[in-house]
Design a protein around this nucleic acid. Sequence first.
DNA 1: CAACTGTATTAATACGTTTAATACAGTTAT
DNA 2: ATAACTGTATTAAACGTATTAATACAGTTG
Lengths: 126, 126
Amino acid sequence: MIILDYRDRRPIYEQVVERFQELMATGVLPQNSQLPSVRSLAMELSINPNTIQRAYAELERQGYIYSVKGKGSFVAENSRIQDRERKALLSEWRELTQKARSLGIERQQVQDIIDEIYDEGGDKHD
Amino acid sequence: MIILDYRDRRPIYEQVVERFQELMATGVLPQNSQLPSVRSLAMELSINPNTIQRAYAELERQGYIYSVKGKGSFVAENSRIQDRERKALLSEWRELTQKARSLGIERQQVQDIIDEIYDEGGDKHD
DNA sequence: CAACTGTATTAATACGTTTAATACAGTTAT
DNA sequence: ATAACTGTATTAAACGTATTAATACAGTTG
């Protein structure tokens, strides 16, 4: 479920945060479903529990999960999460598109990529 | 010309590298034009010359500039630079677009942003 | 020769991440 | 109640990297 990339320069806890955000945004982790415990996930990834602790604390701070002492950590209300993720991504996407234009990339070129991705592209929708 | 963002978590030398790449890719710094000297730029940004030295070394390693002892540092052949920048950006753009689709963002929505940017958008072309 | 250029090197400092080792608090099943 | 889970908090050490500092050397230019 979680894969660490040690060549990635970003800290581990941040990779964990981002990965869980993806899993929640895509619905793989449904609302109120339980995350692995701090200690078990640390064991599984062969890292220190404190690092997972930090990742979970960050996820909770951002409203992605809620934690209950003695019980565990759970996915927060999903609709909000997906909405937030989409907005963040679209904002990033807009920036990058503007940069593309400023670099003189033709409209047709980005158009082709969109067609490619949205026509045949990866996984099916319902 | 160069602005440092100390809230940015990336190292200073990397910000300098990226900023110069932009200036070269957009043609603000034409081929063979001279970059500010290591010491003068360090002075201007109120940072250590070694940091600029590192940024320039990285730019040279990546083929963006060439340096001549006693003379200065200069922008390398520009066509290659712009080509490389475009390819790098398009690759990043494709990835982000795929992520958008996987998050369930509609084709029309990204289409609208493209239209917005490429129709009215920022600066004029020739 | 003076005043610029780039380049190299060594040391010290600072900072953030991660680990380690605990401890405490709440839940659950036996 | 006790063992075995959960989350949470804290302190210290280790480690890597970025940055600064202080030089030194080499080449160019007027």
